[in-house]
Nucleic acid binder design. Sequence first.
RNA 1: GGGGUUGUAGCUCAGUACGGUUAGAGCGCCGGCCUGUCACGUCGGAGGUCGCGAGUUCAAGUCUCGUCAGCCCCGCCA
Length: 598
Amino acid sequence: MERRFFDATWKRTVYCGEVGSRHEGTEVCLNGWLRRRRDLGGIIFIELWDHTGIVQIVFNPEEQEAIHDLAGELRNEYVLAVRGVVRARPAGTENPSIGTGFHEVAVSDFLLLSPSRALPFDMNDVDKVDENLRLRYRYLDLRRPRLQHNLRVRHRIALFTRNFLSREGFLEVETPMLTKSTPEGARDYLVPSRVNPGMFYALPQSPQIFKQILMVGGCDRYYQIVKCFRDEDLRADRQPEFTQIDIEMSFITEEDIQSLMEQFMQGLFRDILGEELPLPFPRMTWREAMESYGSDKPDLRVSAKLVDLHDVFADSGMEAFRTLLTEKGSVRGLSFAGGAALSRKEFAELEARAKALGAAGLAVFQVKEGTLKGPLVKFLDEEAQKRLRATAQIGEGDALLVVADKDWRKACGILGTLRLELARERNLVEEGWRFLWVTEFPLLERDEEENRWVAVHHPFTSPNMEDLGLLESDPGNVRSRAYDMVLNGNEVGGGSIRIHDPEVQQKLFGALAFTPQDAEERFGFLLDALRSGTPPHGGIAFGLDRLAMLLCGGRSIRDVMAFPKTQKAQCLMSGAPGLVEDRQLAELHVTRALPSKE
RNA sequence: GGGGUUGUAGCUCAGUACGGUUAGAGCGCCGGCCUGUCACGUCGGAGGUCGCGAGUUCAAGUCUCGUCAGCCCCGCCA
């Protein structure tokens, strides 16, 4: 037979998953992958797949003998163009478990477009396959309905974002990928400059400074869906390159951006999931989040809260706690409904976990048969016991876990971790989408290694103007104008009102222990810009990958990225990163200095 | 940098607590039979450096040490 090629006559007239009653009796052309074949000796069925679904094709030797004979050679994942007439399946042979299951295509002719080798894993059973292999053969993994769905959801998120922000007057502006390294923050990915020997670009950790300068440049409202790069260790929700929805606005305060971003989320969830989010989202200060939930990104689906046991133990007979409290230490509790049933062994296991998190110990109170039990009860008089039960709101059958530490953040953090672990183990995480804003983060925190103050958010975040006076006297207690959007215990976005006053900016660089020359050298262009007529401005950035992950119900952002990297930041498909030739390095004025193997 | 976990046929796994014939199963692959299946059925066949390297032992998939890789977590991620 003459060799035939794919041409206009073989282009599909309908997607596989869309074959239905309206095509009955008409000839259609389908393009897709052979997902499964059932050769009954005479009649042959194949399932043809594309991203819309699956349809059954019938090769009947009585109807098309020559075509049927050729079909015997077909194998899984061959790419075919198939022509045939759509008809209702004979009564009793319908398959309601697939969308097209009441119809089939009686093939009249087909063209093999591309055969496939025997594949390294079974396409029909790919959910269980080792991620190693899935990443190496990502093009096969991508043919799974799950990943197809995720990529399409991700596209719809990006599309909704562009439509929403464009409608609200935002301008999408591209900022450079080859930019300048700044020493603050995450480790940079560096790119050597061939024409500037010894000099390096950095890939952006975020377009932060550029978007602020766009505000100085009169752009008023900017956004960008943009790749960002951070050379830090990976996690299920962290990749070295990831995508931000980056947003900045002029002449606004916190309330403006927060309420607009709530509307954005409301629209997005309506569009993607058909969910109606109630507005406004609750606001919570960072301090309250830490004290009540032991986290700066509280998961409100878990109802348990932490309590401050200062008043219970301040005058108690418990010497160690009393001393701790007089020295500004902290005793915190986590009420644990049903915890009275906890066995000695289970508690020991809990205590071990608390210690692994850095706790000196873990104490427990249990309410059994109306009385408070536990090793510390003997230190508490009747009054203090009453206060404990009232403060912690524990009743019959409940328990209270107690951690003491000289640092309240540590005590709360440990209980916050236990709170989540216990809730997950005991299925106490409620369904739903629980958003909130966390506000008033501290501006600065102490870096003990470098022995200096560093920015919690970034060095362009505006301090709360009321706290400006504390910048030199008590830097740790300066509140910032930063805010995070938190969803179900995930930080999905974070931003701030920026510093638009060059003097405040310089003051902050001072607090971060930059010399004036340092500041000028590194950020002089920003300071110059700020001195050139700068509107008050602020913004936010959302992690597109994390949002997509949550909206797809996934556990890892790898499942919403087409080509993710492994925990060692490698691409198993392409083999990146790889070695380069000496000639390339020489051009870039770079030499290798490999670590010696001990 | 640290802790945990996994690694046996192309894929998913069993076998390892207590070392002992020729390392098994299902799926996939190859071949035969089979005309309404849909995880088609059925008969047969090929397919193994038990991640890699040392060590203990008469004997190692199994025990010891090291190492590599995937995943989860801590540190880190303004």
